[in-house]
Amino acid sequence: MSQKRYNQEFKQIIVELYRSGTSVSQLASEYGVSEVTIYKWIKWLSPIEVAKEITVADVDAIQKENLRLKQEIEKKKKIMTIFAKKR
């Protein structure tokens, strides 16, 4: 059995319909998506409540760390390519 793939826009529409009052069971039967999947989308697309305020400085630090990690991954990929060619 193959998995169905749904784009982000479709998922967002289903979640918005749920938030506007349509039941999950009705959405599942109308759009042919399992209830479990819809509940996962609702959880995934719901805002996260944070215990403290996040500052711009916090976001900036996270973005810098993310960039550093991406660069590190790219370096490792290049190194692996070089070693793979030497074999």
Rank of each mutant, 00 (worst) to 15 (best):
Met1Glu: 08
Ser2Val: 12
Ser2His: 10
Gln3Asn: 12
Gln8Tyr: 06
Phe10Ser: 05
Ile13Gln: 06
Ile13Phe: 09
Tyr18Ser: 12
Tyr18Asn: 12
Tyr18Leu: 04
Tyr18Trp: 11
Arg19Met: 11
Ser20Gln: 14
Thr22Leu: 07
Thr22Tyr: 02
Ser23Arg: 06
Gln26Lys: 04
Leu27Thr: 03
Ala28Met: 03
Ser29Tyr: 04
Ser29Val: 09
Glu30Asp: 06
Tyr31Thr: 00
Val33Tyr: 05
Val33Gln: 02
Val33Asn: 02
Ser34Ala: 11
Ile38Gly: 04
Lys40Gln: 08
Lys40Leu: 09
Lys40Arg: 14
Ile42Trp: 03
Ile42Pro: 01
Ile42Lys: 08
Lys43Trp: 04
Trp44Asp: 12
Ser46Val: 01
Pro47Met: 01
Ile48Gln: 09
Ile48Ala: 07
Val50Met: 11
Val50Gln: 11
Lys52Ser: 13
Lys52Leu: 12
Lys52Arg: 12
Glu53Ser: 06
Ile54Arg: 06
Val56Arg: 12
Asp60Thr: 14
Ala61Ser: 10
Ile62Trp: 13
Lys64Cys: 03
Asn66Trp: 07
Leu67Gln: 15
Arg68Tyr: 11
Lys70Val: 04
Ile73Gln: 15
Lys77Pro: 00
Lys77Thr: 05
Lys77Met: 12
Ile79Ala: 13
Thr81His: 08
Thr81Ala: 13
Ile82Asp: 12
Phe83Met: 15
Ala84Trp: 03
Arg87Thr: 05
